[in-house]
Nucleic acid binder design. Structure first.
Length: 421
RNA sequence: GUGGGUAUAGCUCAGUUGGUUAGAGCACCGGAUUGUGAUUCCGGGGGUCGGGGGUUCAAGUCCCCUUAUCCACCCCA
């Protein structure tokens, strides 16, 4: 009978007590983005459905079954399942290509996918991503990878691997795909069922099947790098050397094949071996034709996206979130008895007008209970007033950390706290 | 989408082969001289046992359905 509500499946509340950790991630993201010259962009959370199908690829799971789609009359809108498409659309719509082609943009916000929830995989999840649109300079590929790696390093994570690969471009990829198909076809029957379906849907995925038997059969398969054209090979080399310029040793992993259709040339992932097989915390790469494919001019781009939930899980596991406490007001105002109710409110008001955060007890609790409340959170000071203080126009200012206490005239309270802070 | 596990107080969990008023720790509230936070001691509030249906004299316990969550698969930032 009684209806009780819960958050929708796969979506969770970030409660005040979780905020410090989240703000740390967001703060780090914004700080680094700024450091690298990226500006924030905030496209709508929904776009025309076809924007995503065009960008992400028709046969990907994302498009086939994971989008939250809303039909209103003739328009079909979908909640964004990833960030790049919207940013690219905004780039095109704003006309940047003509007036200011090179744009370094970042975003941080919720994405939506209708998937079966699991640890580290929610229907509404948060990503921090950057998109550098308007140039194919290999230094940008390296820079973007560096930024992604720095994000994790800044949070205290070490031992992460930045693995990169090149997927080539149109022709290279076609030639390579054909070579892989030829290579696999003769022994296709020996692969697992899944691989057989992958063979039809996205041949390259067969190569990173986790089934050991399939892995063995794939041994000796053609390697994409060998199929790169002159220009793309040079680009790949240049990205690696730029990475070295930034003090990072490139780690080439020919197994990396991003799932999304739009990637070209550079692709990379950042892994945390500490969390096992499902270790990718970040994925990204170059998408030189997406802008054009979405109806814009033919400008190249490179970017990445980092999921917050995986990052948070890892930070939690490593105990790097300890000591992050919910923020409490600086001052807790205490009245000795109910008599001071009104004076307590006045003092709190004065403090707030003076730019100092303050709260007080509203449950009419005992003096002792108020002291306990003051000592519990991260309040820095307790301001205490009883009959005597009210009469004399003073308050007791107690430093809760140092446990020291001084008497201060009411009209000098704000100043006293300011100078002590 | 497929397979499996779990669901008891705000949190972490006990609860025997079905059998009286469902427990603990932590947390919360009050008190131990109505002017100072810890520890300790005493006391207290709080659960229609996730929801619905069924079997039974009797269901937290057994069966079915449902919702959520977790794990693996699928897929993937």
């Amino acid at each position: 009978m009684k209806k009780s509500y819960q958050a929708p499946r796969g979506m969770r509340d970030v409660l005040p007590e979780n905020m410090p950790a989240w703000q740390r991630l967001e703060g780090t993201a914004r700080h680094l983005a700024r450091l690298f010259g990226f500006s924030e962009v905030r496209p709508p959370l929904m776009e025309e459905t076809t924007l995503f199908t065009r960008a992400v690829g028709e046969v990907t799971d994302i498009v086939e079954k994971e989008m939250f789609t809303l039909q209103k009359g003739k328009t079909s809108l979908s909640l964004r399942p990833e960030g790049t498409a919207g940013v690219v659309r905004a780039y095109v719509q704003a006309g940047y290509a003509k007036r200011d082609p090179l744009q370094r943009m970042y975003y941080c916000g919720p994405m939506f996918r209708y998937e079966r929830p699991q640890k580290g995989r929610e229907r509404m999840f948060t990503q921090f991503g950057v998109e550098c649109i308007g140039s194919s300079d290999p230094r940008l590929d390296a820079e973007v990878m560096d930024l992604a790696a720095r994000f994790f390093e800044e949070l205290g994570l070490t031992g992460l691997e930045v693995r990169m690969n090149s997927m080539g471009d149109g022709e290279d990829r076609d030639r390579y795909r054909a070579a892989v198909t030829d290579f696999l076809r003769p022994k296709l029957g020996e692969f697992c069922e899944l691989c057989q379906s992958r063979f039809e849907r996205n041949v390259l995925r067969v190569l990173d099947c986790k089934n050991p038997a399939c892995g063995e059969l794939s041994m000796g398969a053609p390697v994409l790098i060998d199929y790169l054209g002159e220009e793309n090979r040079a680009h790949f080399e240049a990205v690696q050397s730029s990475l070295r310029d930034l003090g990072r040793e490139p780690c080439v992993d020919t197994g990396i094949v991003r799932g999304l259709d739009y990637y070209t040339r550079t692709v990379f992932e950042i892994h945390a071996p500490a969390i096992g097989a499902r270790s990718a915390l970040c994925g990204g790469g170059r998408y030189d034709h997406l802008v054009r494919d979405l109806g814009g001019p033919d400008v190249p781009a490179v970017g990445f996206a980092i999921g917050f939930s995986g990052t948070l899980i890892l930070l939690e596991q490593l105990g790097l979130l300890e000591g992050l406490e919910r923020e409490a007001p600086e001052v807790y105002v205490i009245g000795f008895s109910a008599e001071q109710k009104s004076e307590v409110l006045k003092v709190a008001g004065d403090l707030r007008r003076g730019g100092i955060s303050a709260i007080y007890d509203v449950d009419g609790r005992s003096f002792k209970a108020q002291m306990q409340a003051a000592g519990k959170g991260t309040h820095k000071y307790a301001v205490i007033l009883g009959d005597d203080e009210v009469e004399r126009g003073v308050v007791q200012l107690k430093d809760l950390g140092a446990k020291s206490q001084i008497e201060v005239p009411r009209d000098q309270l704000v100043e006293a706290i300011r100078s002590a802070l």
